[in-house]
């Protein structure tokens, strides 16, 4: 119980700091203190500054706002789409998921970026990027969910329920959903962080969150340079935060399922 409560408190805190980032952050995410680039943590800057003299702590707060809201939303979208698609399970669906998992979706993002006007506000393009990520990611969870459904259709209780003449929607809502829920939740928990990271790789193609807007993804990109991390361990802050969030989410759901 204590774990669940701690997890809840932590998640609420993260959520609050994300919502209140503009109020809580000591500086704007784009303000450049050009006299103190790469400042060490402490003093004026809690986590130090990056190479353009921007406050890492403020950037982390804003990044949290971006990633904590959008990545889970995109993950939820994928799982939801997968569930909808699974309603029409059958040969065509399995073919579609195969194709969906195999084609290079990256080009869809390139096309999206090309179709967006260049002066689109960064916030809008970020939301669209995550939305597209959510849409493009339906195939993986659909694959797993349809596997579960197929298995469920063979289960004894399902045959009983069907032979007893219970309405289809009732079977789905009352009997099938509780079974699917844990699978869907697991997919969601795996996808949300995957999307945080995917945004980082899309950033390399200019399709993620562009300068100067921060996101966990583009802050995590700094980890690619091992010597930079050695010099300033504060670079690990987004990683630690991401991990704690996942952990809290986990602690939360573990309890839920045990109950």
């Amino acid at each position: 119980m204590i774990w669940r409560r701690m997890a809840l408190i932590f998640l609420v805190l993260v959520g609050l700091s994300a919502v209140l980032a503009p109020k809580v952050a000591p500086y704007s995410y784009s303000e450049q203190f050009r006299d103190s680039p790469n400042a060490p943590p402490g003093g004026k800057f809690l986590l130090g500054t990056d190479d353009m003299g921007r406050d890492r702590f403020s950037r982390l707060l804003y990044a949290t706002a971006v990633s904590v809201t959008l990545a889970p939303a995109a993950a939820a979208l994928s799982v939801l789409l997968a569930l909808v698609v699974c309603a029409f399970h059958g040969r065509v669906l399995s073919g579609l998921t195969t194709i969906g998992m195999s084609i290079p979706w990256m080009f869809l993002f390139i096309i999206l970026r090309a179709e967006l006007p260049l002066n689109t506000a960064p916030e809008v393009s970020v939301v669209l990027t995550f939305a597209l990520m959510g849409v493009a990611g339906w195939a993986g969870p659909a694959r797993v969910l349809s596997g579960s459904i197929r298995e469920m259709m063979e289960a004894g209780w399902m045959l009983h329920a069907r032979s007893a003449g219970i309405a289809r929607w009732r079977i789905a809502a009352v009997y099938a959903w509780p079974h699917l829920r844990s699978v869907a939740a697991a997919q969601f928990r795996a996808l949300a962080p995957a999307y945080v990271l995917a945004e980082a790789s899309l950033g390399l193609l200019g399709l993620g969150v562009a300068e100067p807007v921060p996101s966990w993804g583009n802050l995590l990109r700094d980890l690619q340079h091992p010597d930079m991390v050695r010099e300033n361990p504060a670079l690990l802050a987004p990683l630690v935060l991401l991990m704690l969030c996942l952990l809290a989410l986990e602690a939360f759901s573990v309890r839920e399922s045990v109950q």
Binding site: A190, P193, A194, L197, A200, S201, L220, L223, L239, L242, M243, L246, L247, L249, E250
Partner: peptide, 8 residues
């Protein structure tokens, strides 16, 4: 597992 999931 969460740690592993958080690292790209």
């Amino acid at each position: 597992v969460a740690l592993l999931l958080a690292v790209p």
